[in-house]
């Protein structure tokens, strides 16, 4: 075990690397969606720096490919990404003792994996937190720019029968376990799974947000019940 202190930015970068592996097949799925929607490669790729959110980008181009209006495609994509508002609330206390520029830049790289890393490794010291966050965020950003560029050029490079897309739910289960450092958090996760399944037919995956809010409310009520 190496006990030498690693600089926070490098640590963030190193922690982000393994989490990127499942995003790689997703970048190729993205390439296929852009090709099927008949969008020029460079225009499709430009959504990576402009939007920087895999599921949001895929939703947008899937709907455009199906002939949806701009308003319909944009609003569906934003509903898919609505969970980022929860990340924004959750991280707001950690951004309070930070400089203004970090609020602007940090918000840009606030994606699922960066959020979970910041929750799994809570760093109290503001400068270290900032460097860790940016190290993880921009490592992910750089890799996403490169891999989506490859994705739109190469398209379906991986045979679909390999099922590599399954790596995404596998990673998120692993992140869920890492974020559940207490039993009640694991219970909340199980509840969220059940509610999401019940609401899975809601349009644009709106069930995700509802399931999270329901589960959090139930956990708070049960805390209050126990403390009586």
């Amino acid at each position: 075990m190496n006990t030498a202190p690693v600089r926070p930015a490098i640590q963030g970068s190193l922690d982000a690397l393994p989490l990127f592996i499942p995003a790689l097949p997703f970048a190729f799925v993205f390439g296929v969606v852009v090709a099927e929607a008949g969008i020029p490669e460079w225009l499709g790729w430009s959504s990576s720096p402009i939007i920087f959110g895999g599921a949001i980008q895929v939703t947008l181009f899937t709907l455009i490919g199906e002939g949806a209006s701009v308003a319909a495609a944009v609003s569906a994509a934003l509903i898919v990404g609505a969970r980022h508002m929860l990340y924004s609330v959750t991280l707001a206390p950690r951004f309070q003792n930070q400089p203004g520029w970090f609020r602007w830049v940090g918000s840009y790289v606030l994606i699922d994996q960066v959020f979970v890393l910041s929750q799994i490794k809570p760093i109290e010291e503001p400068v270290a937190f900032r460097r860790y966050f940016l190290g993880a965020g921009f490592t992910f950003w750089t890799l996403w720019m490169i891999s989506t560029a490859l994705g739109v050029v190469l398209g379906p490079a991986i045979p679909p029968e390999w099922g590599v897309e399954f790596a995404a739910p596998v990673l998120f289960v692993s992140l869920m376990m890492a974020a559940s450092d207490r039993r009640d958090k694991l219970a909340a996760a199980a509840l969220a799974m059940a509610v999401t399944y019940l609401l899975a037919s809601l349009p644009n995956r709106a069930g995700i947000l509802i399931a999270v809010i329901c589960s959090v409310a139930v956990m708070l009520l049960s805390q209050r019940w126990k403390s009586r």
Binding site: D112, Q119, P169, A189, A192, M193, L199, A200
Partner: peptide, 24 residues
Amino acid sequence: RALEYVAPTVMAALVISMLTTPEG
């Protein structure tokens, strides 16, 4: 206290939404 539950529940919800069709 409520915000402590956001990370595990969002991850859980994402797993299920990846394993279900849009028809539910």
